[in-house]
Design a binder for these strands. Sequence first.
DNA 1: GCAAGGTC
Length: 614
Amino acid sequence: MKVLCVAEKPSIAKEVTNILSGGKSVRRNSPSKYNSNFDFKFDFPGHGVCDVTMTSVTGHINRTDFPAQYGWGKVPPGRLFELPIEVKIDKDKAAIHRNISTEARNSTYLMIWTDCDREGEAIGYEIFEAAQKGNRSISFNHVWRSHFSHLERNHILNAARNPTGLDMKVVDAVNCRQELDLRVGASFTRLLTDALRGQKNIPSPVSYGTCQFPALGFVVDRYKRVKSFKEEKFWYLQADVEKDGQTAHFNWTRGRFFDRLYVITLYQECMKNPHGKIDSVTKKPTSNYKPYPLTTVQLQKDCSTFYKMSAKATLDAAEKLYTGGWISYPRTETDKFPRAMNLKSIVETQTQDSRWGQFARELLDGGFSQPREGKNDDKSHPPIHPVKFQKLEAIKDDNQRKVYEYVVRRFLACCSTDAKGFQTVATLVWGNEIFKATGLEVSELNYLKVYTYRKWSSSETLPPFQQGESIPIKFSEVKEGKTGPPNHMTETELIALMDANGIGTDATIADHIDRIGARSYIQKVKKGGSEIIVPTELGIGLIEGFSSINFENNISLSKPSLRKRLEVLLKEVETGRRTKDQALKENVDLYRKAFVTTAENQAILINEYKKYQT
DNA sequence: GCAAGGTC
């Protein structure tokens, strides 16, 4: 009996083959260059020793699109909410598809080894359909779905022995998302492109996407807040005292007031007393926590902050490092390592490095501490970590070198201990007012020795104050300050906002940012050594246009709420609380109404765009 | 020529 196994990507096929075959497998070429077939034997409980072929796809192999007769210009865009949609084999994936059909011919069972997430389940179903094309006798009941979250040996063996069936509710949820994204994206894109055609400086196409627009909305919103900012003056008190020849600056605990006369009145009350009193002095241990294990989104944010790399460039570099075998799979939401994972052996591989080798050695000599555990687990991949050692000098590509160094330092930091120190807080009572001064003394750097991106150093320490002592006020004043504008949007913040609002996934956030750039909705601008993101005239015009139109039920096409609502709905489809058809109808109706309203108000869109044109 | 989601 033969079992055909199919993984979501070649690397998983290879790893799982190694584990299940005990290293004894034979590789065969397939019609698709990157997706080899591996033959071996494995003992499936209840089926005995079976012939196994393990192969792979590269993500989805089908494409959802409108049939050619409903192409651009051939049908009014509004009809795209009801016209039939076609699921075809992606023509770039024809060879992969053919390989599965061929390999299924002499197979009795099909075993799905795609990632255990929503999209993975749907890809599993696409694989099943491809297998059925080659072999009608593989029915849905002949599909085994393995469940694994990482590539540790026993975990994979266990997954091979305890499969379930494909969960069609999860597949339905994905189909629902695909259909909605396509109908909304295609209809609005054609509408916007047609509406704005002929205006000045309009690129083509003017696209709309359920992720593109909320992302653009964040950028425009921030830009407007910066532009409309008006500074305000405020006043506050400050007092310095001196002891043993050392000056300590005390800050007012009441913060600041926008009323100058009020602050002056308070100040005059204080000035009646030449002395203040040290009300309390506390010295307590404090920690600077080591970072959580690394997720994709965090990697992108950090490389943007520390290296000024774009999210896309970071992901591209990480991808190369992954296919080269240097780091683990770079698309993960998981921020806790599986308990069974042997982290020390990974630390061991880094001991030979000239920069952090010594640090890694110290971890193995007793400094190791189990990494912190975050709350996220995508049940597919562990946090990003180094796999093999590589000398930095040997990595030719700048971005890859930076990402590798970051991944290693972050990993070693996770396996180290928190930095330790002491914080001293002194409270000064002067007249009716209370002031505070703090001092920090760092005693152990620990993880900060390797995680050089973060600074935590001793500040000025406080003189040896005694509780209750009376002390002369050496200097004091009413200080004036002014509020500053919010900062312009950075890529780091945009990634964080999208992530927090469920706009896109770890694997696609970078693409969306890239795309709204390619569509000329946003641009990156150098500003004082860093890079900010600002909207273009078209970007502002589109967002302002949409917010000037009154939509039924007050929905917004440029805010994250609709996409968030879709996510909630998809969860309900996954758990069976709602059917795919219900969820789809509800959302399609919602967007269809918004489409009609938009079409009726095209003039508003055009006017808003003109308003922001220079 | 359109989307978002996989991945190379």
